[in-house]
Each structure stands twice: as structure tokens, then as C-alpha cells.
């Protein structure tokens, strides 16, 4: 759909804004509505919009499927690593209190990292599903 001038221009303006909003939702989830899951979906939406407008071939050049696949696994890995870090620091699995000296700062850090893991896995899963369903 690249020859549609209006779609082309609007997508060019919208895609960075959608990404920015996704990052806001990701890292503002502690204070407002949102979190890793929603942010991941919104972040994936910007890539899917790119794929719809400029074609799946160009999207493959922007983000390679194998890169996205490893990102999906890395998200779960980050989540589990935060849990294991709690065990290594002498607490239970997924106990963030022991991550740092101050329990509340530890909770904050732990939540930010696991939300990052959730966001990565969700975003890459959505992009991979789009790759699987979209017709080249």
C-alpha cells in the first residue's frame, strides 16, 4: 500500500508516536494504568502498521524474524533471572525485597525488570504472529 500517499504520510508520523506511547506505558505502569503487557501490544502495533503500509518484505529487513524469536525467549529469561536473583540474594523465588539494600527500592527495580521481560515477550510474540499470518 506504499503508493497511497495519505497512508504513507500518516504512517510516517504515527509510527514514532505509537512507539513513544508504548515506552511511556511500559515505564509509567507503576504510576498509571498500563504495564508490560499493554506496552508490548502497542509496541508491536507500530511494527504491524509498518508492515501493512510498506509491505512485509521491508518489515523483514527492519526486524529479522530470527532476531524477534530470540527476543521472545529473552523476555521470559529476564523474568526468570529476576526470580533467581532473589534466590541468590537469600530470599524466595521472585522476592524482590532482597534485591537491594532498601526493600522498597528492590521492589521497584524488580517490578521494572519483570515488566520489561513481559513487554519484550508480548511484543515479539505479536510481531511473530503477524509474520505467520500475513501474506507476503
Amino acid at each position: 500500500m506504499e503508493h497511497h500517499l495519505v497512508l504513507n504520510v500518516v504512517a510516517r508520523i504515527l509510527i514514532p508516536l505509537i512507539m513513544l506511547f508504548a515506552l511511556y506505558v511500559q515505564f509509567h505502569g507503576d504510576y498509571g494504568p498500563g504495564g508490560g503487557f499493554q506496552a508490548g501490544v502497542i509496541f508491536a502495533a507500530s511494527f504491524i502498521l509498518y508492515g501493512i503500509i510498506y509491505g512485509i518484505e521491508r518489515l523483514r529487513k527492519v526486524v529479522h524474524p530470527s532476531f524477534i524469536r530470540s527476543l521472545a525467549a529473552l523476555g521470559v529469561l529476564i523474568y526468570v533471572s529476576v526470580g533467581i536473583a532473589g534466590v541468590l540474594n537469600g530470599g524466595e523465588f521472585l522476592n524482590y525485597n532482597v534485591l537491594l539494600e532498601d526493600p522498597r527500592t528492590g521492589q521497584h527495580i524488580g517490578i521494572i525488570f519483570i515488566e520489561l521481560g513481559v513487554g519484550m515477550t508480548v511484543a515479539s510474540t505479536m510481531i511473530l504472529l503477524f509474520y505467520a499470518f500475513a501474506r507476503p
Binding site: 504510576y31 494504568p33 526493600p103 517490578i111 515488566e115
Partner: peptide, 14 residues
């Protein structure tokens, strides 16, 4: 205990 205002996030994540 958690130190963040959004209750939903602290329940879900912690």
C-alpha cells in the same frame, strides 16, 4: 510494602 501507587501493578508484578 511495594512503594508504587498503582495497586494493579503491585498485585500483578509483586
Amino acid at each position: 510494602e511495594i512503594g508504587i501507587p498503582n495497586l494493579v501493578t503491585s498485585v500483578l508484578a509483586s
